[in-house]
């Protein structure tokens, strides 16, 4: 019976130790997500649109990027996260100007992350608010800029996975 008591107490201790283990509830790092490449499809925006799809990988390490604007091919290197942001903004700007854009990346992206990006433009505050609140509740970070020349709100929602 002494042994039974010891076993029961050990089980209880293990159970409590498991419940109190702080590492058990640690949030996994997004850097752990590995993606082999980068693909961006850009839809040309209309008056009010929900364009630009997503999928974008790469962080650290060296990756070569090919992107095609109106059929003409360009290439570049991504070595830092800032490069990725710069390239993405460039791609979005091309698309907003009405160009056709596609992007392909090469490399193993050793610590790659994936980012989803959506855009929305409208001069209606109600429509912008509805779209933005929906995206925020879905876990996206939303940036809104007001273009005084066109009286339009340009919204970008992005989420890293």
């Amino acid at each position: 019976m002494k042994h039974t008591k010891t076993i029961v107490m050990t089980c209880l201790a293990c159970l409590l130790a498991t419940a109190c283990d702080p590492t058990k509830y640690a949030v996994p790092s997004t850097a752990e997500t590995k993606k082999p490449g980068l693909n961006v499809n850009v839809h040309l925006p209309g008056e009010e649109n929900e364009a630009i799809q997503h999928s974008f990988a790469g962080q650290q390490g060296s990756n070569s990027i090919d992107y095609i604007v109106d059929g003409k091919q360009y290439s570049g290197e991504i070595t830092t996260e800032e490069d990725i942001t710069t390239l993405y903004i460039k791609i979005l700007d091309f698309a907003k100007l009405g160009h056709s854009v596609s992007v392909t990346a090469h490399g193993d992206n050793p610590k790659g992350t994936k980012t989803d990006i959506h855009t929305f433009s409208s001069d209606s505050q109600a429509k912008v608010a509805t779209w933005s609140s929906r995206m925020v509740r879905k876990g996206y970070s939303v940036t809104i800029e007001y273009d005084k020349s066109t009286h339009t709100y340009n919204c970008t929602a992005f989420k890293r996975k």
Partner: peptide, 22 residues
Amino acid sequence: QQHVAQGMAHSGQNGEAITFWQ
């Protein structure tokens, strides 16, 4: 940086911008 990296790149190009998240 996590929430505003893309927005920061946009901000200041054509005017003031604001970023928000849950």
